[in-house]
């Protein structure tokens, strides 16, 4: 076991995959400048600075992916992905289908998002659900350095386009990472970092830690909370959510992104449908507001659901009389 930050884990995964597969390419505004060591190890052909033009970075990745390469593009901050959206959504997400399966698009688009640096709404926007809504794409947002490494390795090996979101608030947080080189975590599998009997807290990204903190706090009330970290938002591990719900009967979904049509809404719909027989209380969602992220650290922190809010929500739910006899 080594200790490293999520950012270091991402670089480790990239290095490992570039060493393993010569078709992996790393491109973006400044990646060759920032990672001269990678240029030295893998060549300037495979580690490329690009023009400041996200649409053509993404379009080039799509064309290259369909032609035998495996590009990883660093689009820097998630809001910049909207410039790249046509290539990712209309080309990578649709041209396999529309061509009757003639092409595949093994590419990864990296983007940072989330509260932590007070950079404001044009650098911090949890817009992952926009991509979850687009057919043909996969979406990942890890909560720990170990998961970031294992999931990025899987994303690079995947035959489909993967949007890989890095939570700014986690980037410099250290965590344990296994030493084994082939630590690949399959996409589409949630983790259960804490098991419990009374209530399920579902989240992803940095609010997983918020849920864990809340779960620890709830212990004093005699409430035993289970925490489910989705890790991959598409494909969504519905079975893991339902398994937990079957055990606890109560569900709180926590996300930093705004609520309307978001991932938490999808989880709530899952609970209201296939999870209905298990429910002993209404499903609750705690989300960020429908507002751009302010460029003000204190206000930005206020967007993120806090452990305090999660605990209050859980106490209210546990107080709800069971509906099932």
């Amino acid at each position: 076991m080594s200790t490293m930050t999520l950012e270091q884990a991402v670089q480790l995964a990239l290095r490992e995959e570039m060493g393993r597969d010569a078709s992996v390419l790393y491109m973006g505004e400044g990646v060759a400048t920032k990672h001269a060591d990678m240029v030295a190890d893998f060549g300037a052909d495979r580690v490329r600075n690009t023009p400041l033009a996200e649409a053509i970075i993404a379009g080039t990745a799509v064309g290259a992916a369909a032609s035998g390469l495996r590009p990883v593009i660093d689009l820097l901050f998630a809001p910049f992905m909207t410039y790249a959206m046509d290539a990712l959504v209309n080309s990578a997400g649709k041209l396999r289908y529309l061509s009757g399966g003639q092409f595949s698009f093994p590419l990864v688009a990296l983007g940072m998002t989330g509260a932590g640096w007070g950079v404001g709404g044009q650098h911090n926007h949890n817009l992952e659900a926009m991509f979850v809504h687009a057919p043909g794409l996969k979406v990942v947002m890890p909560a720990t350095p170990a998961d970031a490494r294992g999931l990025l390795k899987a994303a690079i090996r995947d035959a489909n386009p993967v949007l890989f979101f890095l939570d700014i608030g986690l980037l410099h947080q250290p965590g344990p990472v296994p030493d084994a080189v082939d630590q690949v975590l399959p996409l589409g599998e949630a983790a259960v970092p804490r098991s419990g009997r009374d209530v399920t807290l579902v989240s992803y990204g940095k609010t997983v830690a918020v849920c864990l903190e809340a779960a620890a706090g709830l212990q004093a009330d005699g409430i035993d909370a289970e925490v489910v970290d989705l890790r991959t938002l598409k494909p969504l591990d519905e079975a893991a959510v339902l398994r937990s719900l079957a055990k606890t009967g109560r569900l709180v979904v926590v996300q930093e992104a705004s609520g309307l049509c978001g991932v938490a809404a999808e989880i709530a719909a899952l609970a209201a449908g296939r999870g209905f027989p298990f429910l002993q209380a209404p499903v609750a969602r705690l989300t960020g507001p429908d507002a751009p992220a302010p460029g003000n650290w204190a206000l930005e922190q206020a967007m993120v659901p806090s452990a305090q809010r999660v605990m209050e929500q859980v106490r209210a739910l546990v107080g709800t009389p069971a509906l099932a006899a």
Binding site: S23, L25, D45, A55, I56, A58, G59, T60, A61, V62, G63, A64, A65, A66, S67, G68, L69, P71, D86, A87, N90, S91, L95, S99, Q102, F103
Partner: peptide, 27 residues
């Protein structure tokens, strides 16, 4: 004949990537 796109400009966005793969020995 690859990656035909009816997003006007889509073919222009992808063509450099196809050419990059060609240049890097994939074609």
């Amino acid at each position: 004949v690859v990656l035909t796109s009816t997003i006007v400009g889509g073919e222009l966005s992808m063509a450099p990537g196809v050419a990059l793969a060609q240049k890097m020995g994939r074609g």
